[in-house]
Design a protein around this nucleic acid. Sequence first.
DNA 1: AGCTTTTTTGTCGTTTTGACAAAAATATTT
DNA 2: AAATATTTTTGTCAAAACGACAAAAAAGCT
Lengths: 236, 236
Amino acid sequence: MHTQLAGDHLYVAVDILILTVRSGRLNLLLSRRANTPYEEHWALPGRFIGQDESAETTVEHLLEEMLPIRQAYMEQLYTFTDVNRDPRGRVISVAYLVIVPWSQLEALMDWMDLPFLCYEVSMDSGGLTLTDESGGMLIPGDLAFDHGRIIEAGIRRLRGKIDYTDIGFRFLEDPEAFSLSELQTVFEAVLGESVDSSNFRRGILARYEKTGRLTQTDQAEKKGRGRPAALYRMDL
Amino acid sequence: MHTQLAGDHLYVAVDILILTVRSGRLNLLLSRRANTPYEEHWALPGRFIGQDESAETTVEHLLEEMLPIRQAYMEQLYTFTDVNRDPRGRVISVAYLVIVPWSQLEALMDWMDLPFLCYEVSMDSGGLTLTDESGGMLIPGDLAFDHGRIIEAGIRRLRGKIDYTDIGFRFLEDPEAFSLSELQTVFEAVLGESVDSSNFRRGILARYEKTGRLTQTDQAEKKGRGRPAALYRMDL
DNA sequence: AGCTTTTTTGTCGTTTTGACAAAAATATTT
DNA sequence: AAATATTTTTGTCAAAACGACAAAAAAGCT
């Protein structure tokens, strides 16, 4: 057993799932580990919680120094406590879901030509699969630690919440001006299946328009072919 | 600052919400603290996670030595990490929801005439209130640490899940033989509001009977007045 | 026998959902 | 310029789900 951590107490870390929707697909940010254990394996970004940090502030600090990103949506996912989940010793992980619009992430990704990669996430009855741009694929067992399980839990949470909370809106490039088909693209990417646009529109408007959180602007989208879409604004 | 814990690292504890339905009301088990801090205050049962325990096994061990109970339903609720949540030092709490049928709990409660008390839980727009059998009342601020907040989160979770998961069935005295009105009583206790029995029955049967998890037995309930209820069996 | 209590089945109008068709508004092609 | 393609938006319609309520059924109690 290669213990690198002092042995008489527990360490607590945060691990974060940074999710985004890129060209209609759900993507996840992974970092390549430089050190043992799991050297050269892909892993979720993470950090130990400091003495004077809550888990949330730890996540914020990690985001700032990695990307840097501020004000991203985050929510606690689950806490993983298996005794042997980290070969270095006793480490508990509090996992967080973080949602960042792709335009923000993209700008920062090539800023830092770093060992980070965005993987397309898909999960069906056959289990979780991650695919990079060149077609390289990963299964949960390829990832460091128990990060495969953490990602699966994250996708399940996201899918479970997307149609009765406003979490889907967090993927939008600009919640102040977006079209309903943009939003629909997010839903389809998260759910991994297509959605009837007519029923989707009806459902979204029924849920949010009456409360006044979702309002139609007087702007229209100006882009290529097809009828220009009306732009909406969401209060988040 | 009265530090009683070594100061250079984090401690991790579990705190558990032991919930039950007693005579139509949702109840919660609290223990009276014997030591500082919050001496004499009511608190959730809890324990530090040991070096060779996961959070789940810690909860199991705590339940066994407290009550003792085995095989109770449990699910992780949330992890509370505020820096100042414990005046002794840096303690993170992983909170668990535990559901125990009242008959089991009752038998054990008078076994141990201990500083444990079952409080009736109610939560509405006016916030959380706990009431003991003699009418004594507590509000969240009366509890030790941040346990008021933890309880509120637990009730919200329970209410949010009860009508699209099978969590309500965990309160039943005997999942192998129960009436639908027994189950309805659980739902009403959890939700804090009454339910139309006709629609309730229709909903439960529609959700579970087709899958074969819920089946009607050939037994009938034999008890006092009124038409005897058919008994059902649920696969949990 | 008649009343009370509780369980169980039934009814009925409203709302929601799912699948699909059609119209509207623009760019692109012929 | 007219026709075509593409995308957004509105509309339709039957099935399913829901909420409120009524009534029947099966027991005990007086």
